[in-house]
C-alpha cells in the first residue's frame, strides 16, 4: 500500500520532536494572526452598545477547536499580548493597554478561557453537533461569564442590565459558533493533526 497525499505523509510520519514543537509554535502564532486578520473584516456596530460585533470571536473559537485547549488558549494570549504592546490589531484598529480598560475588555479576557473550553470540549469530537456545542459553551458561555460581570463593574450597570445589553450579540455569536464548528470539522478532515 502506498501513500497518496503528501500532506498526510509528512504529518503522520515519525517526525523529530523539534519539528513538532516548531509546528506547534508557528501554528499558535498563525491563529493569533488569524484572529488579527479577521478584525480587518468590517464590523457590524450595534446601536447603544460600546462593543461592535466582529469576526474575531470566530477566530477565537477556531483556535480552540483546531489547536486544542492549551494551544488554542496560548494563541489567544499571544494575540492579546501583541495587542497590549500597542499593535492595533483589535477590530476597528484598536490596540494598546487602553483596550484592556474599556467596558468591553472582559469579553477580550474571556477569550482565553473561552478558547480553552472550546478546545477541551472539541477534543476528539467528530460529530458536528458536539463541535457546535463546544463552540457555544466556550465561545459564548465562558466568554460572557467573564465579559458580563466586567462590563457591569466598569460601566456601573447591574448584572441584569449588563446581561440584557449583551443579548444583542447572541444571535451573531451563535452564527459564528456554527461557522467555527463547520470550519473546524472541515479542517480536521482536510488536514492532519499535529505529530499524529
Amino acid at each position: 500500500m502506498h501513500a497518496g497525499s503528501a500532506a498526510l505523509k509528512t504529518a503522520a510520519m515519525p517526525v523529530s520532536s523539534a519539528v513538532i514543537d516548531a509546528k506547534a509554535l508557528v501554528r499558535c502564532a498563525l491563529f493569533a494572526a488569524l484572529i488579527a486578520a479577521l478584525g480587518l473584516l468590517p464590523p457590524i456596530p450595534v446601536p447603544v452598545l460600546p462593543v461592535p460585533v466582529t469576526a474575531q470571536t470566530l477566530g477565537v473559537m477556531l483556535a480552540g477547536a483546531v489547536l486544542g485547549p492549551r494551544r488554542g488558549a496560548l494563541a489567544v494570549v499571544l494575540f492579546l499580548g501583541v495587542v497590549a504592546v500597542g499593535f492595533p490589531l483589535l477590530a476597528g484598529g484598536r490596540g494598546g493597554l487602553g483596550a484592556f480598560f474599556a467596558p468591553s475588555a472582559g469579553f477580550l479576557l474571556g477569550w482565553v478561557p473561552g478558547a480553552f473550553v472550546v478546545g477541551a470540549l472539541a477534543v476528539g469530537a467528530t460529530s458536528l453537533l458536539r463541535l457546535i456545542a463546544a463552540c457555544l459553551t466556550g465561545g459564548i458561555g465562558v466568554v460572557y461569564l467573564v465579559g458580563i460581570p466586567w462590563m457591569a463593574a466598569v460601566a456601573d450597570l447591574s448584572l441584569a442590565q449588563a446581561s440584557v445589553a449583551s443579548l444583542a450579540f447572541v444571535p451573531g455569536d451563535i452564527l459564528k459558533a456554527v461557522l467555527a464548528a463547520l470550519a473546524a470539522r472541515a479542517v480536521h478532515r482536510g488536514y492532519p493533526a499535529l505529530g499524529a
Binding site: 500500500m1 501513500a3 505523509k9 503522520a12 510520519m13
Partner: peptide, 9 residues
C-alpha cells in the same frame, strides 16, 4: 523503514 499505520513510505 518509515511507516505510519499500515502505510509504508
Amino acid at each position: 523503514s518509515v511507516r505510519f499505520g499500515d502505510v509504508s513510505v
